[in-house]
Design a protein around this nucleic acid. Structure first.
Length: 605
RNA sequence: GGUUCCGUAGCUCAACUGGAUAGAGCAACUGCCUUCUAAGCAGUAGGUUCCAGGUUCGAGUCCUGGCGGAAUCACCA
C-alpha cells in the first residue's frame, strides 16, 4: 500500500468517526501541497461542509488532529482556509527510497492479463518517411512502451498501404522516365520511388494546364470544379495510372512484377530509417492482403439489420442515433470502400491477437472515419469495439505552411536525422565533451543525443495539438529538452562512478538514523514515488507527454539538488550515502522514463 | 452551412482532471565554474488564461452563446 492510500484510509475513517458519514477511501482526493505551504499532501475540506455541518477550517483541524494521532506516518499538519496540509515523517520517505532502490522494476505495474494492439507508422509505399510520420511513429512506439509498463501485453503493428492509385502513379512515372534507374547507397529505394511520385505530379500538372487551355478555347463556359473535372477526365497520365491499377488488380504479371520491385525498394529504404529511429514492429499488415476483407461482415450486418441495401444494391448504415450521417459501406457494384476494409482488418487483427484495446495512431484528419468505424463495430456487437481508440494527433506545420509530399515540400526524415546528428556533434565538440571517447563511442553519442532531442521535442506536446516545426532553428539542446534530461542522467552516472571509486558502499548503507533531510531531498523522493502513478495515468490517456513532462520535472528537481547539496564534501557518512542512494534512484527512474519515450540515456556526455 | 478539435507570457509548451498567489523553457537582463560534468544553478522582467454570460464555497478547467484557427462532412485512401 502506498502513502496516499494509507492517508486516504485514515481520512475516510476519521470522517466516519467524526461525522458519521461513510466515505470510500478511493474517493478521498489528495493533491501535492503547493510549494508556498508546509506539508506534502493536501486534502481539500470544502466538499465535506455539508456532512460535517462545520466550517472548512474546523473540519481541517479535526481531521488533522485525528490522523496525526492514528496514523504514524503523519508527522504534522496545518490548516489554511479549507486546505488541510499533511506532512509525512522523514523515516517514511527514507523507507520509500530504500524500496525504490531495491526494486529493479520500479514503476512497472502488475500484469493485468489484458492485451493491447497499437497500430502506427502505416506509411504509403510511394514516398519516403517525413516529419509528419515521425510524430506518428514516436507516438505509437512510446504508447506501446507505456502500455506495456502499465501491465498490458502489447502487439505493435504497422499497416502498410502498399497498393492503390498513388503507387501506380510512381510506377507509371518510373515506366515512362525510369531508364532502369536503380537505388544506390546515396539514394535509397524509398527516395527513388518518391522522386517518381513527384515526377508524375509535375508532368500531370503540366498536362492539366495544357488541357485546360484547350478547353478554354473549345468550351469557354466551363469553369471552376467542372473545368477541373473535365480536365481530369481527359488526362492521359491519370487514365494510364488508373489503367495500371486495374491491371494490378487483375493480377497482370508484368504490372505485379513492377509493383513488387518498387515496393521492395521502398521497404529496404524504410528499414534503414526505422532502424535509425530505434523502432520495430511485431507484425506487419499489408493492404494488398487486406483490401478485399470485410465483405463477409457487411453480409453479416445485412442479415441482422445493422446495414441496409438501397435500390441500386449499394449498402449503407444509418448512424443518426449517434448524431452522425448515413455512410456507404459497400458500393452498388459490390466493391469495397475504405471503411469496408477497415472493418475487415479490425476483425483480422482481433483473430490474430484477441485484444481488449486497439489503438490506431492516425492523424486527426481521420477523426470522422474512426468514430464511424467504432460505431459500426459496436453495432455489430464486437466485444473489442469499446476498446477501439483513435490516437488522433495534429499536423506538423512548417513555417512555410503545410507539408505536401506531392510537391516535395516536406522535411525528409533521414535528412532531418542527419542534420540533428551534425548539430549534436558540433555542439558536443564546441563544449569539449568527448575527451576519452573512441570514434565509435562519440558517433553513438551523437545519435543518442540527436534522437533524444527529436523524440522529446515531438512527444512533449499534447498529441491533439497541431505543432509548428522550425527546421532553421533546429532543435534546442538547452532547457526543456531531451538532451537536458539525458545530461542530468549522465551527471548522476559520474557521481555513481566516483562513489564506486571512493569505495562508498551506498547500496548497503543503513539510512535509518537520518533525520534532518533537506526540503529538496524530500521533494525528490516525493516525485520518485509518483512515477508508477504517472505510468498508469499516461497509459490510461495514451499520452507520452505525461511521461515526458514527468521526466523533465524529475531532472529539473535533481539539478536543483545537485547545485544545492554537494555530495562528496558531506562529512556525515550516513548522509553522504543517502544522497548517493537518492541520486542512483533518480538516475534509474530517469532512464526508465526516457525508455518509455524511446530515448536512450547515455552514461557520459 | 453541420460536426469535431484547438485558443494560456513576445515564442514553444505545463497546470495532478473543479482547488490556494496560473507554472517551465526559449528570447532579454543580473549573478554563480580553484568544488560530483556550467548541455547547469539562482534571480529580474513578462498574464484580463480569445470575448460575454452561467453553474458554486471555488472556473484556465464544466455549461450556453459569440470570435479566431484547423480538420472533416467523397461510391479517394
Amino acid at each position: 500500500m502506498n502513502i496516499e492510500e494509507k492517508i486516504g484510509i485514515a481520512l475516510a475513517k476519521a470522517l466516519e468517526e467524526l461525522y458519521g458519514e461513510k466515505i470510500e477511501a478511493e474517493k478521498i482526493n489528495l493533491q501535492p501541497t503547493r510549494k508556498d505551504f508546509e506539508g506534502n499532501y493536501t486534502f481539500v475540506t470544502f466538499p465535506y461542509t455539508r456532512i460535517a455541518k462545520q466550517k472548512p477550517e474546523a473540519i481541517g483541524e479535526a481531521l488533522g488532529k485525528a490522523i496525526l494521532e492514528k496514523e504514524d506516518l503523519v508527522s504534522a499538519y496545518n490548516v489554511v482556509k479549507g486546505f488541510l496540509n499533511i506532512s509525512i515523517s522523514q523515516s517514511y520517505w527514507i523507507e520509500l527510497l530504500l524500496d525504490i532502490q531495491t526494486d529493479a522494476s520500479f514503476g512497472k505495474l502488475k500484469a493485468n492479463d489484458q492485451k493491447v494492439m497499437v497500430e502506427f507508422s502505416s506509411p504509403n509505399t510511394n514516398k519516403p518517411l517525413h516529419l509528419g510520420h515521425l510524430r506518428n511513429i514516436f507516438l505509437g512506439y512510446s504508447v506501446s512502451q507505456i502500455v506495456e509498463a502499465a501491465g498490458y501485453e502489447v502487439m505493435k503493428t504497422n499497416l502498410v498501404n502498399d497498393r492503390g492509385i498513388h503507387i501506380c502513379k510512381s510506377m507509371l512515372a518510373y515506366k515512362k522516365f525510369g531508364n532502369n534507374d536503380q537505388p544506390t547507397k546515396e539514394r535509397k529505394g524509398d527516395k527513388l520511388v518518391g522522386d517518381y511520385y513527384v515526377k508524375f505530379d509535375k508532368e500531370y500538372k503540366a498536362e492539366l494546364e495544357q488541357i485546360k487551355a484547350e478547353i478554354a478555347v473549345k468550351q469557354p463556359s466551363l469553369t471552376g470544379k467542372e473545368l477541373e473535372k473535365s480536365a481530369d477526365l481527359q488526362s492521359s497520365l491519370l487514365n494510364e495510372a488508373k489503367a495500371l491499377l486495374q491491371k494490378w488488380e487483375a493480377g497482370d504479371p508484368e504490372t505485379v512484377a513492377l509493383w513488387e520491385k518498387l515496393n521492395n525498394w521502398v521497404y529496404d529504404g524504410f528499414d534503414v530509417t526505422y532502424k535509425r529511429l530505434g523502432v520495430s514492429f511485431d507484425k506487419i499488415y499489408k493492404e494488398s492482403d487486406t483490401y478485399l476483407l470485410g465483405k463477409d461482415i457487411i453480409e453479416e450486418g445485412l442479415q441482422n439489420g445493422v446495414f441496409y441495401k438501397r435500390e441500386d444494391e449499394s449498402v449503407w448504415i444509418n448512424m443518426e442515433q449517434e448524431g452522425l450521417d448515413e455512410k456507404l459501406v459497400l458500393r452498388a457494384d459490390g466493391t469495397s470502400v475504405y471503411i469496408t476494409q477497415d472493418i475487415g482488418t479490425a476483425e483480422l487483427k482481433f483473430s490474430d491477437f484477441p485484444m481488449q484495446k486497439s489503438v490506431y495512431v492516425v492523424g486527426n484528419e481521420q477523426d470522422y472515419h474512426f468514430t464511424v468505424l467504432k460505431v459500426i463495430m459496436q453495432r455489430l456487437g464486437r466485444d473489442y469495439a469499446d476498446g477501439i481508440y483513435h490516437l488522433s494527433y495534429g499536423m506538423v506545420d512548417l513555417p512555410s505552411g503545410k507539408m505536401k509530399s506531392r510537391e516535395g515540400t516536406v522535411v525528409d526524415a533521414d535528412d532531418l536525422i542527419d542534420e540533428m546528428e551534425e548539430t549534436a556533434q558540433n555542439r558536443t565538440e564546441e563544449l569539449g565533451k568527448i575527451d576519452g571517447f573512441s570514434k565509435e563511442e562519440a558517433q553513438k553519442l551523437y545519435q543518442q543525443l540527436a534522437m533524444g532531442a527529436l523524440k522529446y521535442y515531438l512527444l512533449k506536446v499534447d498529441p491533439k495539438k497541431r505543432m509548428l516545426f522550425n527546421p532553421e532553428e533546429s532543435i534546442d539542446f538547452q532547457g526543456n529538452t531531451g538532451v537536458y534530461i539525458q545530461y542530468t542522467h549522465a551527471k548522476i552516472c559520474a557521481i555513481l562512478r566516483k562513489a564506486d571509486k571512493d569505495g562508498i558502499d551506498y547500496k548497503n548503507a543503513s539510512l535509518k538514523g537520518l533525520s534532518d533531510m533537506a526540503k529538496t531531498e524530500e521533494e525528490l523522493i516525493f516525485l520518485l514515488n509518483k512515477y508508477p502513478e504517472k505510468i498508469s495515468e499516461a497509459a490510461e490517456s495514451y499520452s507520452p507527454a505525461t511521461i515526458a513532462n514527468y521526466a523533465y520535472d524529475l531532472a529539473k528537481l535533481y539539478s536543483k539538488f545537485y547545485a544545492e547539496l554537494p555530495i562528496f564534501v558531506e562529512p556525515d557518512a550516513n548522509k553522504l550515502a543517502f544522497r548517493v542512494v537518492l541520486s542512483a534512484a533518480v538516475a534509474s527512474t530517469i532512464k526508465k522514463a526516457l525508455g518509455l519515450l524511446g530515448i536512450e540515456a547515455p552514461e557520459r556526455m
